[in-house]
Computed example of a mutant assay.
Amino acid sequence: MAKLFVNSCALVFLLLLSTSVKSGVSQEPGRCMKSFDCPGCDKAACRQQCRSNCTAPTYKHGFGSCKTDPSTQQQGAELMGKHGINVPRGVAVSSVDEIKKVIQDVFPKENELVVKSQILAGGRGLGTFKSGLKGGVHIVKADQVEDIASKMLGQILVTKQTGPQGKVVSKVYLCEKLSLVNEMYFAITLDRKTAGPIIIACRKGGTSIEDLAEKFPDMIVKVPIDVFKGITDEDAAKVVDGLAPKVADRKESIEQVKKLYKLFCDCDCTLLEVSLIPQMLMLKY
């Protein structure tokens, strides 16, 4: 059957008075935001208290909240999977030694896998390693995964969002390769104009959504969500109809949009972005 799958994602967690971009947020991880309630508090002690007492995706306690880092694709996929959102199977590895076991245990029947460098920056697929390797995302035969991963791990990847200094790749994400029917873009963020969440979607692929929005603004679907009512079936249907999926079931797609919104709220996100929503024909699911 055909399904909508979430492939490439980024989550940026709530931070009071922060500004966020696709590749990260402005302040240091774990910085205490208690100052509204207790001016002059011991930031270090508060930070330690948060980390000791909280298990939620964002650190919270009775006096205020602290923030975590924005997620990598692996972390985003794990959170989405827990919320019932369709994501391809994937595992993050930090050493070449782990790869054989992962392939044997998780992908024993896969002929090809996708190897994705994990850094907090966009544009990885079009990036270049300082070693000379082109691209931070590769589709390779299963027996070639070790070779390509070894050329990524520990190397510096430069993308349009990292600046010339680039970022060190300490993990790669191995995931199954699925057959794409077409690609779409989806995001939920906070809108100052409506003072609430807004869903932004486009029926064309989102790897260069800024360019698409500039050239074809009519393709961009914007659906503001009433923060008090939450997302309705009608809101989700507007998004799905704007995406115009070709083969995915409309009713199931509406449910997927609602689950993405629930994740946005449950994890206190300021931005949930799926830069690539592929429709994939998955006969084995």
Rank of each mutant, 00 (worst) to 15 (best):
L4T: 08
S8P: 02
S8A: 10
A10M: 02
L14E: 09
L15P: 04
L16W: 09
L16R: 11
L17V: 07
L17Y: 13
S18M: 07
T19E: 13
S20K: 07
K22I: 14
E28V: 00
E28Q: 00
G30S: 00
R31D: 01
C32G: 00
M33V: 02
K34P: 04
F36E: 10
F36G: 12
D37K: 13
C38P: 02
P39S: 08
A44K: 06
C50F: 04
R51P: 00
R51L: 03
N53L: 12
N53V: 11
C54R: 00
T55M: 08
Y59Q: 11
G64T: 09
D69Q: 08
T72E: 13
T72A: 01
Q73Y: 06
Q74I: 11
E78R: 07
L79V: 06
G84Q: 05
P88D: 12
R89V: 11
R89A: 03
G90S: 02
V91L: 02
V96N: 02
K100Y: 03
K101Y: 09
V102S: 05
I103V: 06
K109D: 11
K116Y: 09
G125K: 04
G125E: 04
L126S: 08
T128E: 08
T128N: 15
F129A: 07
K130C: 01
K130Q: 14
K130R: 11
S131N: 06
L133P: 00
K134D: 13
G135T: 14
G136K: 06
V137R: 10
H138D: 12
H138T: 05
V140R: 01
K141V: 05
K141R: 13
A142D: 12
Q144H: 03
V145L: 09
E146I: 13
D147F: 15
I148D: 10
I148A: 01
L153Q: 01
L153A: 14
I156W: 02
L157W: 10
L157R: 06
V158Q: 05
T159R: 10
Q161T: 12
T162G: 10
Q165T: 14
G166M: 01
V168T: 13
V168M: 14
Y173H: 06
L180T: 12
Y185H: 10
L190C: 12
A195P: 09
A195C: 12
A195W: 00
P197T: 08
I199W: 03
I200L: 09
I200W: 09
I200K: 14
R203E: 13
R203F: 10
R203P: 04
G205C: 14
I209L: 09
L212P: 03
E214D: 15
K215M: 02
F216Q: 11
D218Q: 15
D226E: 02
K229T: 10
K229H: 12
K229L: 13
G230V: 04
I231D: 00
I231P: 01
D233L: 06
E234M: 09
E234V: 07
E234D: 13
D235F: 04
A236M: 03
A236T: 10
K238N: 09
V239E: 06
D241K: 08
D241G: 00
G242M: 08
P245M: 03
K246P: 02
A248N: 05
R250A: 13
E255Q: 15
K262W: 00
L263M: 02
L263P: 07
C267M: 03
C269D: 07
L272S: 07
S275F: 06
L276F: 03
I277Q: 05
I277S: 05
P278R: 04
M280H: 12
L283G: 00
Y285L: 05
